[in-house]
Amino acid sequence: MASNAHADFRSRLQVWLPKLVLSPSLAMVLVFVYGFIIFSVYLSFTDSRLLPSYGWVGWENYSKLWRLSHWEISLTNMGVFAVLYIGICSILGLGLAIFLDQKIRGEGFIRTIYLYPMALSFIVTGTAWKWFLDPGIGLENVMQSWGWTGFEFDWIKNRDFAIYTVVLAAVWQTSGFVMAMFLAGLRGIDNEMLKAAQMDGASNWNLYRRIIIPQLRPAFLSAFVILSHLAIKTFDLVIALTGGGPGRATELPATFMYSYTFTRNQMGIGAASAVIMLMTIAAIMIPYLYAELREKK
């Protein structure tokens, strides 16, 4: 600035006001998000148990964590859950979006029904599926009372299959949303290009395989990022649906962290597991957000 001497008070205030207005939000985020992250990372290196304590133990919590079979089960479950959840949601979402994009009568109504689960709490979803899948009163019982006496469906009570019921409920809740994302992507594709391809003699199958689906890459990317971050954060659904059981059959890192921190009084280990969750999400989200914000410029 060459000569600020002429700037009056109001002009100077106007220069600072925007930053002043932004600062409370920024301060909150810096303290409650980044400050807390640092604090949690610090705790993961301490001997905190019931309450935070500040005895430095180095990597002990992490090495303990990786020796815990409970943690190993959580990670394995996470892997199974994430792969199936993301995969099924994407395929189902894309398929339904393509079907809905065929000048369907009542499209608005169908879309509304596909999407409403997204408005529900995972606790509600969990409750509904919990009792529907319960062999005592739910599907199994219904089928048997309808005369199919040999019918068995006890996945939710079965250690080997319970995780798939979590996948089922989670897919039910979010696949409609993924469908909407793909539908928006489909609607963004230039129709003239499709007409040109049709004149080139492309069949519908080829049209989708060679032209349309490759152009949905941004929608696939968004869907992957959103779904993977939802998968890692999945907590309420498991609590409501299975409570992590039977046994530890549906424990996920989020429930692991919660029970180690708040019910087993192993805060140091809980913090270490939270740090690992954060790192995983950061590895996915940061490049994505970076790319999104860069494009905007």
């Binding site: 600035m1 060459a2 000569s3 600020n4 001497a5 002429h6 700037a7 009056d8 109001r10 002009s11 106007q14």
Partner: peptide
């Protein structure tokens, strides 16, 4: 937009840093 260097004057009044409305 701010002036990086030099001066802009209206009726001999230096306008650098003066709010647009003034």
């Amino acid at each position: 937009e701010e002036i990086t260097s030099g001066e802009i004057r209206i009726k001999d009044q230096v306008m650098n840093g003066v709010h647009p409305s003034k």
